[in-house]
Amino acid sequence: MSTRLYLSLRYALVVVCGLVLAFPLLFMVSGSLKSAREISAFPQPLLPETPVWQNFVDAWDYLTPQVIGNTFVFSLGIVGLQLLISLPAAFALAKIPFRWSAVILATLVVPMFVPANLTLIPLFVVTFQLGWLNSFAGLIIPMAAQCAFAILLFRQFFVTLPPGLIDAARIDGAGWLRVLVSIALPLARPALATFCSISFLTAWNMYIWPQVVAPNPEHRVINVALAPLAGGENSVLSPAIGLAGAVLAMIPVLIVFIALQKWYIKGVVGTGLE
């Protein structure tokens, strides 16, 4: 089989698998342009007869510059804080020999299996006791502290760094912080990009925590602002407006994904040729 044929087949595979995976989402974009009649119909038509752009105008009414600004502060705050606390911790767990690393790893993993809905109220109580209700501190810090995933991801990456690289730097007299910042971090770009996209998306889509901890309008984030569009038995709005809102909300996330892609795909690896 020629390389050319192989590459074309592979390209076709990439496209087909991508479309299959994205189908439900494309269905949602199409839904955001449907009329109230089409969106309620069952079975639902695949495409709208005439696109109803008004859905987007109506959804836009629920978004203010402040809401969008809040969501950025909230999401970027979480991503930034998590990077700040997780990177050194992960590095220490992977590369600095010390006695407690195994215990700490276990401590990180075990609470992941406690359902979030059960911890919500105690977490709320802690945040309330700190006096952080209706503030960005209360919104961001408790969520940034959910850092087990970040630490495990970065640790996994740092572990694969060749030990020689670090030993050499250490012998040259570099401190651990220096090794982390100037040797480990530059090499961890794919992991950083991966983490940033996942963490940003998770924070951007958060709904229950902002709702509970900062119910006042000054701290409203995008999913809370769009919630009234989601429909329901008593709703007086078309469900398609809700989908239009969901489409608007995912635009920044898509931009982040596209922007960070360059970072985690380094080049010609996939062809297997040099």
Binding site: I85, T107, L108, P111, V114, P115, L118, T119, L120, I121, P122, L123, V125, V126, T127, I141, P142, A144, A145, Q146, C147, A148
Partner: peptide, 14 residues
């Protein structure tokens, strides 16, 4: 951070 916002609430819930 993990202790205050993950472990304590988890224990609190359990």
């Amino acid at each position: 951070a993990f202790t205050v916002f993950v472990i304590v609430p988890a224990l609190g819930g359990l």
